[in-house]
Design a binder for these strands. Structure first.
Lengths: 222, 222
DNA sequence: AGAGTGGATAATGTATACAAATAGCTCTGG
DNA sequence: CCAGAGCTATTTGTATACATTATCCACTCT
């Protein structure tokens, strides 16, 4: 990870996720190269990787821009997630081990800690949430499925809008995780699948609500 | 498409799909550069793209190899396909238009032509099959879903082993397509979904059978 | 005034040279 | 004969210069 292209990748990625490079902004190789203190070569490499992570898009004439996901795109991503992860939950319930269950419980404990604070620790929530879902995918067994999903799940849209989730949404998410844990503990695949489906859809609605508000705020500010 | 990196991409891709670069073989930038008549720079670009298409994998120490999909990996890919495309079929049935239906029928007619020949035209079959499924995904409406699936569906494993499918498997596939068309014509989503699920699973079994035979032949030849 | 053309500007594509890292081999010591 | 250290050859990473292509703007011609 000490390679220049890796550093450039991380740097640009965090610029995008933090909003320093806003959605739709053109990304210019040389400007980023200077900013990262490397030459254009590793920056080009990093941009290709960000492109396959769907964080950057290129026009037909090779210009690169920060991906600007439409509401429909996001809806598609959530729908994919709900279909695939529900199936993963079903399989995970069948193959659940005590060790994995413990890791899942730990992840949800981390989420509990994060949301109990006076000011919710959104970073902690997201990290716990990532781990929670990652373990389920891992137990479900499909490595490629897991990596594909990972790309979608950690998309910047979700990341950025998580900060707009309401306190209620965070708590509801936590208690739904508890329900999933119960389903896993009983090895009840059908139950797990059903809960996961509504869990993801609820997350989508929380996103849509938050985004709607954000859009209004932005309009009002102009 | 006249860029050197595009030409390199196509050239290397066809080397892989044709078997000229066999699964598991190391791919060396400079060797390919010379072969393609370009410098290493566009070859590096092409390799990154092939990597995100899952045709090339890299070790932790940056060496690149032609992807060598295990039977389990292929099973995962088929499973993903069955889950996602079944859902797509359900949605496509609800939103089917006459124009799309005509394209689907055309695609299956192309398949019929290909398999009726004295020596089945596998290339024609694959092309018709690609179009058949592409239209369904298109009608289902999710662009990102479609592009993700496209990557998986056209994987080299499937491509290469299609030549080993039995005559019966090709004909069965064609008649299952006819059944799907009937389901679409009736706008019967549940039916379409159910047929699609078994259609994909049957394709997987055909693959597994063909692969098993191939493995035996290879062993016998050594 | 508007459409279209031309050239200046900015951005990306490509080649090449060199640096760094990895893999494979030989040689030594036990 | 095996294990391990060190060297060599191979391969990839990075910087830089130059070529190519796209964009933008001013200018002309109708």
């Amino acid at each position: 990870m000490s390679r220049a292209s890796d550093r450039a990748f991380e740097a640009i990625r965090s610029m995008i996720l933090s909003g320093e490079l806003p959605a739709g902004a053109q990304v210019v190789e040389e400007a980023l190269a200077e900013k990262c203190g490397v030459s254009r070569t590793p920056v080009r490499d990093a941009l290709r990787r960000l492109e396959s992570d769907l964080l950057v898009v290129r026009t037909d004439t090779q210009r690169s821009f920060v991906a600007d996901w439409s509401l429909d795109d996001v809806a598609d991503a959530f729908e994919l997630r709900s279909i695939l992860e529900a199936e993963a939950a079903r399989r995970a319930a069948d193959q659940m081990t005590e060790g994995a269950l413990a890791r899942i419980r730990d992840a949800n404990r981390q989420i509990a800690d994060a949301i109990m604070k006076p000011v919710p620790d959104v970073g902690g929530f997201l990290e716990g949430n990532r781990e929670f879902h990652a373990v389920i995918l891992e137990v479900a067994g499909s490595r490629r499925l897991a990596s594909l999903l990972g790309t979608l799940i950690e998309q910047p849209v979700v990341w950025r809008t998580a900060h707009h989730y309401s306190r209620e949404a965070l708590h509801r998410s936590h208690s739904e995780h508890d329900e999933l844990i119960a389903a896993f503990a009983r090895r009840d695949g059908a139950w797990a699948k059903s809960i996961m489906t509504s869990h993801i859809l609820r997350a989508y609605h929380a996103y849509a609500d938050a985004h709607g508000l954000t859009a209004e705020f932005q309009q009002a500010a102009e």
